[in-house]
Deep mutational scan, measured.
Amino acid sequence: MKATFQVPSITCNHCVDKIEKFVGEIEGVSFIDVSVEKKSVVVEFDAPATQDLIKEALLDAGQEVV
């Protein structure tokens, strides 16, 4: 499964690193693409990962998800 999250609070590479760390810890996540320019995060994943778990990880990383 693939999901795109709009994350307007992404401003720098530190944000990218933190997002990759938090989302990458979720079992089932196979790909993460964070774009500072587009302020988006694209995640490819399989169970047990879910969109809700990914959104929670983004929030835990200090990001706003819309």
Rank of each mutant, 00 (worst) to 15 (best):
Q6A: 08
I10M: 07
K21A: 08
G62R: 04
G28D: 02
L59Q: 09
A3T: 07
Q6E: 11
V65G: 06
I10G: 04
I19V: 06
T11S: 10
A49W: 02
E25D: 11
G24P: 02
E37N: 06
V23H: 01
V16W: 08
V29F: 00
F22E: 04
V41A: 00
I32A: 02
V16F: 05
C12P: 08
E44R: 11
V16D: 04
P8W: 05
V29P: 00
D60R: 14
I19E: 03
E20G: 07
S9T: 13
V29A: 03
C15L: 10
E44T: 12
N13L: 12
G24A: 07
E27Y: 06
S30G: 06
D46L: 07
S9M: 08
E25S: 13
A57N: 01
D60H: 13
T11A: 09
H14Q: 15
V66S: 09
V16L: 07
T4P: 05
F45C: 03
G28R: 00
L59S: 06
S30R: 13
T4Q: 11
E44Y: 15
G28F: 01
V42I: 12
I32D: 02
A49D: 02
S9F: 11
K39W: 04
F22M: 09
I32V: 11
I26A: 02
F5P: 04
L58Q: 01
E20R: 14
A57M: 04
S35Q: 10
D17R: 13
L58E: 03
E56T: 12
E44G: 12
D52R: 11
K55D: 02
T11P: 12
K39Q: 10
D46Q: 13
C12S: 14
E64R: 10
N13D: 11
Q51V: 15
K21I: 07
V34P: 03
P48S: 02
I19K: 00
L58V: 03
K18S: 07
E25A: 15
Q6N: 12
F5N: 05
E56L: 14
I32H: 00
A49S: 02
T11V: 13
E27C: 06
A57R: 06
V29M: 01
F22C: 04
S9A: 06
E64P: 06
I54A: 01
V42T: 13
E27D: 10
A57C: 03
C12N: 13
A61Y: 05
V36N: 03
K21S: 07
D60Q: 14
V7E: 05
T11Y: 15
K18V: 11
D46C: 10
D33W: 13
V16E: 04
A47Y: 13
K55G: 04
C12W: 07
I32L: 06
V23L: 12
E25R: 14
E37Q: 10
A57V: 05
K38D: 10
Q6I: 15
C15A: 12
T4H: 13
V43W: 00
T11G: 08
E27R: 09
D60I: 11
G24V: 05
E20T: 14
E64C: 15
S35C: 07
I54C: 01
E64T: 15
A61M: 08
A47K: 10
L53I: 10
F31K: 14
A47R: 09
M1D: 07
F22Y: 12
S40D: 04
V41Y: 01
V23E: 00
K21W: 08
T4D: 07
F5W: 05
A47M: 08
F5R: 00
V29L: 03
E20P: 02
K21P: 02
K38P: 02
A3K: 06
T4F: 15
I26L: 09
S40Q: 14
V65R: 05
I26S: 02
V7N: 04
G24W: 12
P48A: 02
I26K: 00
E27F: 08
V29Q: 02
K2A: 04
E56M: 14
G62N: 05
A57E: 01
P8Y: 07
S35V: 06
F45I: 02
E56A: 14
I54G: 02
S30Q: 10
C12A: 12
G24H: 04
V36H: 04
P8K: 11
K39A: 06
L53Q: 12
S30A: 10
K55V: 15
K21R: 11
K39H: 08
V23T: 01
S40Y: 13
Q63G: 05
K21F: 11
E27K: 11
I32G: 02
I10L: 11
S40R: 14
L59T: 06
S35M: 05
Q63A: 09
C12K: 10
E64K: 11
E37P: 06
E27N: 09
A57H: 02
D33C: 15
E20S: 11
K39C: 13
V29E: 00
K38F: 14
G62S: 06
C12T: 12
E37D: 09
Q6F: 15
G62K: 04
Q6P: 06
A47Q: 06
V16R: 09
D46V: 13
E25V: 11
G28C: 03
C12M: 10
K18G: 04
D52T: 09
C15N: 10
C15P: 06
Q51E: 14
V41S: 01
K21D: 04
E64I: 15
V36I: 14
V36D: 02
K39N: 06
F22D: 03
A57K: 07
S30T: 13
H14I: 15
L59R: 12
D52W: 08
E37F: 06
G24Y: 12
E64S: 10
T11H: 15
F45Y: 14
V7F: 07
V43T: 01
K38E: 09
V66D: 07
S9R: 00
F22P: 03
M1Y: 07
V16H: 05
Q6K: 10
M1F: 07
A47C: 09
I19W: 03
E25Q: 14
Q6G: 08
F45L: 02
H14T: 15
F45N: 00
D17G: 08
L58F: 04
E44P: 02
V41M: 04
M1T: 10
V36F: 08
E20H: 14
K18T: 09
V66H: 08
K18E: 07
H14P: 05
L58P: 02
V43R: 00
V65A: 06
E44S: 10
A61N: 03
N13A: 13
V65W: 08
K55T: 07
I10E: 04
K2I: 12
F31R: 14
V66M: 08
L59W: 08
Q63V: 13
D52Q: 13
F5I: 06
V43S: 01
P8C: 09
D46S: 13
I32P: 01
K39M: 09
L59P: 00
L58I: 14
Q63L: 15
V43H: 01
G28K: 02
K38W: 10
T11D: 10
A61T: 04
E20D: 05
V65Q: 06
A49N: 03
D33I: 11
I32S: 00
V42Q: 06
Q51H: 14
V16N: 04
A3Q: 07
V41P: 01
V34W: 00
F5C: 07
F5T: 06
V43E: 02
K55L: 14
N13Q: 15
P8G: 10
T11C: 14
E44W: 15
A49Y: 03
Q63D: 04
V43Y: 00
D17P: 06
L59H: 09
V34K: 01
E20L: 15
A3R: 01
D33S: 13
K2H: 07
V41D: 01
L59F: 09
S35P: 01
I26R: 00
L58C: 00
I10C: 14
V23C: 03
D52M: 11
V36G: 03
Q63C: 15
V34I: 10
P8E: 10
E27Q: 12
V65I: 10
N13E: 13
G24R: 11
V16A: 09
L59I: 13
E56N: 13
K38H: 13
E56D: 10
I32F: 01
H14N: 15
S35L: 06
G24S: 12
Q63R: 07
V34D: 02
S30H: 12
S30P: 00
F45V: 00
K2E: 06
S30L: 13
A47G: 05
T4Y: 14
D60A: 15
V7L: 08
P8V: 12
F5H: 04
K38Y: 10
Q6H: 15
D46H: 10
V36C: 15
A57L: 04
K55H: 12
C15F: 09
E44Q: 10
T11M: 15
K55M: 14
N13I: 15
D17T: 15
I10Q: 03
K55R: 14
F31H: 12
V66L: 09
L59E: 09
L59M: 11
A49E: 02
I19T: 01
A3V: 14
E37V: 10
V42L: 11
E37T: 09
D52V: 09
S30F: 12
E37H: 09
D52H: 10
V42S: 09
V29K: 00
A49V: 03
G24C: 09
T4M: 09
A49P: 02
V23N: 01
L53K: 13
A47H: 13
A3G: 07
V7Q: 03
F22G: 04
K55S: 05
K21C: 05
M1W: 06
K55Y: 14
L58S: 03
T50Y: 04
D17W: 13
L53H: 06
G28T: 03
E56H: 14
